[in-house]
């Protein structure tokens, strides 16, 4: 009788510890990342050596370029991913829904990271990534640092003037970022006012920009648009001589990698950068 009770006790303890281990999760050792930002964040968190697959556009940091490619951001080869025997696949917002579903059905662990809609979202998703790969503490520390830096930067510009800003992220068609994008946060944190904040669609009209007459125009063409297209776009704006931004020569072309790939730390860098553009006199 005593023996039986003892056995049951052992069984319960064993079961509990298994449940606890399952809850805690096994730390993934072979990770495939299908989003450039996530790849960058994995390296930031010191888990770069565990990444076994990446997309063609995961080029930051430089070490990432040695990792095997499994596709571009839009089209990925499910077969290639499976062949890499990953224990974790990290999917971004652009990953094909069919590919995600297929990978899940093949029994792989797929974690999805929808694109962040504000700075908090960037931090949350970074934190979630840290938790999944067993780098919770590191993620927490970095988020804390990023948050305090952002707070410091925000208080710096709190009492400054509030210039109207038009941020252009796509050249043809004219795409901007409205309320519900981290880029809107970027403008507001830097003490600016996003003229397109409440526009219904991200595709904006040139006429509307001219009517808004922003103090500053920032051009950050994404991806393949390239530097040339951005400079050309700047020339086009300079043709409208009556714009305030033209008169004061406050049209800036910025590094789209810095603005459009938001880890918490690059967000801080981008914020520093945009504050310099918006408040040149304070910085000097």
């Amino acid at each position: 009788m005593k023996l039986r009770a003892w056995l049951i006790f052992c069984a319960v303890i064993l079961a509990c510890s298994f449940a606890w281990a399952a809850e805690k999760g096994v730390i993934p050792e072979r990770i495939v990342s299908l989003s450039p930002v996530i790849t960058e964040e994995l390296f930031l968190l010191g888990a770069g050596d565990r990444v076994v697959g990446r997309t063609h556009y995961c080029t930051k940091p430089r070490e990432a370029q040695k990792i095997e490619e499994v596709g571009n951001v839009l089209e990925v080869s499910v077969e290639k991913i499976v062949a890499l025997r990953p224990d974790l696949v990290l999917a971004g917002s652009m990953t094909s829904p069919k590919a995600k579903e297929k990978l899940k059905r093949l029994g792989l662990r797929v974690e999805e990271f929808p694109s962040a809609s504000d700075f908090n979202g960037i931090c949350d998703s970074f934190f979630k990534l840290g938790r999944i790969i067993g780098k919770e503490k590191e993620a927490e520390t970095m988020v804390k640092i990023a948050r305090s830096k952002v707070d410091a930067l925000r208080s710096q510009v709190r009492d400054g003037n509030r210039p109207a800003v038009f941020l252009q992220v796509g050249v043809d068609p004219l795409v901007t970022m409205t309320h519900g994008s981290f880029l809107n946060d970027l403008i507001e944190f830097s003490g600016g006012v996003n003229v397109a904040r409440d526009a219904g669609s991200r595709i904006y009209s040139r006429e509307k920009v001219i009517a808004d007459d922003p103090d500053i125009i920032i051009i950050s063409g994404m991806g393949s648009d390239g530097e040339k297209a951005n400079e050309k776009e700047k020339k086009i704006w300079q043709g409208y001589r009556n714009l305030k931004a033209v008169k004061n020569s406050t049209i800036y072309v910025v590094d789209s990698d810095l603005y459009c790939a938001p880890t918490p730390l690059t967000f801080v860098n981008a914020l520093e950068n945009i504050i310099r553009l918006l408040h040149p006199h304070d910085a000097a």
Partner: peptide, 10 residues
């Protein structure tokens, strides 16, 4: 599937 593997064309 194979012509520019690992990238896949539609």
């Amino acid at each position: 599937r194979t012509v520019i593997a690992p990238l896949e064309l539609p």
